[in-house]
């Protein structure tokens, strides 16, 4: 399988420059980075990709078996690193992708110059026994799945038959999925579960590459104490709080986010 087309990999920016790889989280695709990319491209080689199932990735490569846990995604990240062979990268993982970066760097530290964990949460579900507050309960996640269902009524009715019914004409599906962030509801449900039900707290201590934890000042999904928890678990890591609000600083404060990534990546040379 061609990894580049499977994950819709795009490489841009300064050839030969240090490599920054941007990984999107649940809910959208590589479009999410488009406001920070121009700044980073001036100095770095920028690698963008879509997780399988998102954006313009190859949907035929998706299977529930491979992508119902973090490992399938982590394998993909490592495969992209191997395929591009650009040397150690600064991996910027947003939200759930931050934990993919943690797992990938634990398995193959030699692929990574450093990690930027953007609005990370190693576990969204509260764990009172361990004194850990992720901010959510399992019921909340079920409610999110209902929200997904409520808003995919139109998608599955109108789009799925066109895409599913014409495997020999993939361009039909591509035209439709071009609208930002449209995702097959079945895939979205599975990815939502991976995102919000995974618990990667124990994996944080395995990270042995330089790490920057960047959290937002007001994030309904990853509260400040979660960012502090992540920083405390990763030896030698640094925590910064961006002025950006919300869960997507690359959209709400693109310049500040790009500068934070660039400043960290520069220290890794």
């Amino acid at each position: 399988m061609d990894v580049r087309s499977r994950n819709q990999v795009r490489v841009s920016g300064r050839p030969g420059g240090p490599v920054v790889m941007l990984a999107h989280g649940f809910g959208c695709d590589q479009n999410l980075w488009r406001l920070v990319v121009p700044t980073l491209e001036r100095e770095f080689t920028v690698v963008l990709f879509d997780h399988v199932g998102a954006g313009r990735s190859d949907l035929s490569a998706w299977s529930e078996d491979r992508y119902s846990g973090m490992d399938g995604y982590v394998d993909d990240v490592l495969e992209i690193c191997r395929e591009l062979d650009l040397g150690p990268v600064t991996f910027v993982g947003h939200s759930v992708s931050a934990m993919m970066g943690v797992l990938a760097a634990a398995r193959h530290p030699e692929y990574f110059a450093g990690l930027v964990l953007l609005a990370p949460s190693p576990c969204f579900i509260d764990d009172p026994a361990a004194g850990y507050r992720g901010g959510f309960s399992a019921e909340d996640i079920e409610e999110l799945l209902q929200s997904l269902d409520a808003n995919y009524l139109g998608w599955s009715g109108a789009m799925a038959p066109v895409i599913m019914g014409n495997p020999e004409r993939p361009e039909l599906g591509q035209e439709l999925t071009n609208s930002f962030c449209a995702t097959d509801p079945e895939i979205a449900r599975v990815f939502a579960r991976v995102t919000f039900l995974s618990d990667n707290r124990a994996d944080l201590a395995q990270v042995a590459v330089p790490t920057l934890v960047a959290q937002c000042s007001s994030d309904a999904i990853a509260p400040p104490e979660v960012g502090a928890f992540v920083q405390a678990q990763i030896r030698g890591s640094r925590l910064i709080t961006l002025n950006a609000t919300g869960h997507c600083p690359q959209l709400s404060a693109p310049e500040e986010t790009a500068q934070a990534i660039a400043a960290f990546a520069r220290t890794l040379r």
Partner: peptide, 24 residues
């Protein structure tokens, strides 16, 4: 605005609604 939503709705808002609104 997101304070007025249910918790699951807030997750949806933060991961889908707000990013799409910003981009589109």
């Amino acid at each position: 605005f997101s304070d007025l939503l249910t918790t699951g709705g807030r997750l949806y808002h933060e991961t889908h609604f707000a990013p799409l609104l910003r981009m589109q």
